[in-house]
Nucleic acid binder design. Structure first.
Lengths: 120, 120
DNA sequence: CATCTATGTTGACACACGTCGAACCAGGGG
DNA sequence: CCCCTGGTTCGACGTGTGTCAACATAGATG
């Protein structure tokens, strides 16, 4: 469950954690490496079910949501679990088990980095 | 070649053209319909080659680029053409033939809408 | 321990996707 | 008219993806 920090758009900060990077993709042509990591995150949001799950977590009060709160998106429960895993692997979400339930929350710096990428 | 206005995140303006819409996906859970159209655009950017092509067009001087200017991304030329078509279908690019060459340019309002979606 | 609820994992399957070579279309010169 | 160059379309092939039912695991609770 350690989330492996994914392959985000983020550079490791000096000591720990991550910092936003990435200037707008309108500024200069992206390199192959940049495109590779960024595409992984866009791809994660490129499925309607995943996008709804991500939005549901992001907009939930307290910045986190239990699976039971957001699993009403029209697909089976295993499918929900599968998509949440994909979002986690892409570095967009983190998860934590507390008692009976598992809570997901968004990785805010990653969201910021993607937003910056699409700024003009 | 009329580009069919795609299924963008954009609402048709009163008279013509499109206007940015879409509040941040952190603001409230996306509906199925919203997620459907937005996911189509994220999906289009979810491939490294397409992302580089898009970035190359977006960052090219004059806001437009001939295919010959950007087709050096490591895949065959038919594949480049295929990806550009996908980006066009997603509403991210438009194309126009002028004489011998075909020029692509980004749909700026769409870029803005996607950026707004990822704002916190 | 037995059992119930909440999630995750596995295996299978149909379909979508990325890629290429070959064939094809559009203009611009000879 | 032929041919060259820039681009798109076609057909095929292997791989990836979304989905589900069935099974497995983690805590809570009796």
């Amino acid at each position: 469950m350690s989330n492996a920090k994914a392959l985000s758009l983020l550079e490791p900060a000096d000591g720990q954690g991550v910092v936003p990077c990435c200037r707008p993709l309108t500024e200069r042509p992206m390199s192959a490496a940049e495109a590779d990591t960024a595409a992984r995150m866009f791809k994660a949001l490129g499925d309607p079910v995943r996008l709804r799950l991500f939005s549901a977590v992001a907009s939930h009060e307290g910045g986190e949501a239990c699976v039971c709160d957001i699993s009403d998106v029209g697909v089976s429960q295993p499918t929900v679990s599968h998509h949440l895993k994909k979002l986690k692997e892409a570095g967009l979400l983190t998860s934590e088990r507390r008692g009976t339930w598992v809570y997901y929350r968004v990785e805010p710096s990653v969201l910021a980095a993607m937003g910056a990428l699409l700024t003009q």
